[in-house]
């Protein structure tokens, strides 16, 4: 089966973000951008499926401005076979991305879609579940481990109390959690090879998808700052402060 993975271009997780002075959003100019870390895990899992003979082809999907080609190239350098970019400068919210993904799924007919459980910019944790809903497919969210047998996937999921095992019918949508696998680094030869792999560019209109945002961002502000406190020298001093100053023990 074909496996489709979604990769989002986000501000690198190491960057300390800055809120714009006019409170319209977060500064993205001249900021290092990378693939969303959960999506790297998605790409890695799909590649391992291909290496085990479970997947025939790994297709990397992204949606957004032309620079998302770089994010797709990263996936191709890791080992994905080809890319699909739905190119638009419009603001894309999870429901719109899920609809774009559905349109590409309808075209490509993959047997599995793997996406990150959340993007580290908007922290929404929605796209995979929404895609599964739109397709009428099963969903294996927050996946910690995957196994496949007879048209079903066994998914070990990271849940509040620990882990949970479910069986879901294929085709399915998987969302990755941190412990699913450790993404590989692309080797230099593979980075060179990736330059020749095809990326198909599509437009939302051509896919018949209305991407208009349903949620309006009225303002974006800095969170209240916590003041740094004091350093204490001894455990006795700490216990005294906790008891008599903070009153928490």
């Amino acid at each position: 089966m074909k496996v489709l993975v979604a990769v989002k271009r986000v501000i690198d997780y190491n960057v300390k973000i800055r809120v714009k002075a006019d409170n319209t959003g977060v500064e993205t100019a001249n900021v290092k951008m990378s693939m969303n870390p959960f999506d790297e895990i998605a790409v890695e899992e799909a590649l391992r499926m291909k290496e085990k003979g479970l997947a025939t082809e790994v297709i990397a999907f992204s949606a957004g401005p032309v620079q998302c080609q770089e994010t797709i190239r990263t996936a191709l350098a890791m080992g994905a076979d080809r890319g699909v970019l739905v190119q638009t400068d419009a603001e894309l919210q999870p429901l719109a991305v899920a609809k774009l993904l559905k349109a590409v799924v309808d075209k490509e007919q993959p047997g599995l879609v793997i996406v990150g459980k959340q993007a580290i910019d908007d922290d929404s944790n929605q796209t995979g579940q929404m895609l599964a809903a739109l397709l009428g497919w099963s969903q294996g969210t927050f996946a910690n481990k995957l196994n496949f047998a007879d048209g079903w996937a066994e998914v070990k999921r990271e849940v509040d109390g620990g882990l949970e095992n479910i069986k879901i019918k294929l085709p399915a949508v998987i969302t990755t959690d941190l412990r699913l696998c450790e993404p590989r680094y692309a080797s230099l030869p593979n980075i060179m090879k990736a330059k020749k792999k095809p990326i198909e560019v599509l437009a939302p209109d051509a896919l018949g998808v209305d991407v208009a945002p349903r949620i309006k961002t009225l303002k974006v502000e800095e969170p209240p700052k916590r003041k740094a406190g004091i350093k204490v020298k001894t455990v006795a001093e700490l216990v005294d402060k906790l008891r008599n100053e903070a009153g928490v023990i």
Partner: peptide
């Protein structure tokens, strides 16, 4: 709602 790991707070309005 918090975005960017709580490093920014977004005020959002839903039209649905």
């Amino acid at each position: 709602r918090p975005i960017y790991a709580g490093n920014a707070m977004a005020t959002v309005q839903s039209s649905d």
